[in-house]
């Protein structure tokens, strides 16, 4: 078969709604785009652990502590699922992490903003995770099987992230004047970075067309952004909260909440590495990576010794094999 015929067959499979699996023929560009996108997504999860993780020790009730620990743990889990999906395409985690730590790979810019108060934790949960869920629900329909399956798993767990955040925002918005001011201030800071998470306008997004043609994405950045704004605004207003957009208005004709212009200069500045926390986030990741090196090496050495010298230390006998059958 010629490459053209293969490409035609490949695109026909996607048009039929089939999933592409790891060993299937795929255009090199599809593989490259997916590795780029999935690893970026994985990096976002693990860098995203940092701004929230910093508040675990300060969470103001025992329950909130538990919830935040579980949420940040989930983010590590989601990063893990996503790295796995990229590994099925031939990428290695060593290489992907090296790309991240040497600033060759990108991650979601929203995590380059600082978390300045406890209310940020609620707002991140409701807004940032809420926005992520909209994107991820679309990606769960992605044409690449392992990516789509990772997304299904992630979406199911992320609903908890969004709801715990919303619950916190509700509580603070109905709380004392100090708490209300705190949560409004957090929304003011996170609103625009959250809207930027959906990516540039469709007309400016260089990867979008190809990703849509190959069924990796099925809806455009602007479409998804609108879904998010329409979901959020009525709830925020009901809580007596506002967003920092003087041009925001409801369009009777379309039923959409229309937002004012997004500051794309800021967006590109942060994407290119000059946001408020880019350096700090990467430094934290590099530090953890370097501090962990001797640990990873020690366990690799121990495993090697076990292989050559036979098992050391206590052995655990395998119980009888129990096969669960259909």
């Amino acid at each position: 078969m010629t490459d053209e015929a293969r490409l035609e067959a490949f695109e026909a499979r996607i048009a039929r709604g089939e999933k592409i699996e790891p060993g299937d023929w795929m255009p090199e560009q599809y593989r490259k785009q997916l590795i780029r996108m999935i690893s970026q997504h994985a990096h976002s999860e693990i860098v995203g652990m940092l701004p929230e993780g910093a508040w675990i020790t300060r969470a103001p009730t025992l329950r909130r502590k538990l919830v935040l620990l579980a949420k940040v743990q989930d983010e590590a889990g989601h990063g893990q699922y996503l790295y796995h999906a990229a590994e099925t395409l031939g990428a290695t985690r060593e290489q992907m992490l090296d790309d991240l730590l040497s600033s060759r790979a990108k991650y979601s810019s929203v995590f380059n903003y600082p978390t300045l108060s406890w209310a940020d934790i609620g707002v991140i949960g409701w807004l940032v995770d809420g926005a992520a869920i909209i994107n991820q629900t679309m990606l769960a329909k992605s044409s690449y099987g392992p990516y789509s399956r990772a997304m299904l798993r992630i979406c199911a767990e992320e609903t908890f992230h969004k709801k715990q955040g919303q619950e916190m925002v509700i509580l603070l918005s109905q709380g004392t004047p100090k708490q209300r001011a705190m949560v409004q201030n957090a929304i003011n800071r996170w609103w625009w970075p959250t809207l930027m998470m959906f990516g540039p306008h469709d007309s400016e997004s260089k990867n979008s067309a190809e990703l849509m043609r190959w069924g990796v994405k099925t809806r455009s950045n602007d479409e998804l952004r609108q879904v998010f704004v329409n979901q959020l605004i009525p709830d925020l207003h009901a809580l007596g909260l506002s967003v920092p957009d003087p041009q925001l208005r409801f369009d009777e004709e379309t039923g959409n909440w229309l937002i004012g212009p997004i500051d794309w200069d800021e967006f590109w500045r942060v994407v290119k590495g000059n946001g408020p926390c880019n350096a700090e986030r990467l430094e934290a990741r590099r530090q953890a990576h370097e501090d962990g090196r001797w640990v990873r090496e020690a366990l690799a050495a121990y495993a090697e010794k076990q292989k050559t010298e036979g098992p050391q230390g206590p052995q655990r006998p395998q119980g009888p094999c129990e096969f669960a059958r259909p």
Binding site: E157, F160, K162, Q164, Q166, E167, I170, Q174, A238, L239
Partner: peptide, 20 residues
């Protein structure tokens, strides 16, 4: 036993309704 990880534990829809 870790039910705090389940989204059903967070009655956000009910809370929003009550506030409205």
């Amino acid at each position: 036993t870790k039910n705090y990880k389940l989204h059903a534990e967070y009655p956000t829809a009910r809370l929003m309704k009550e506030i409205r």
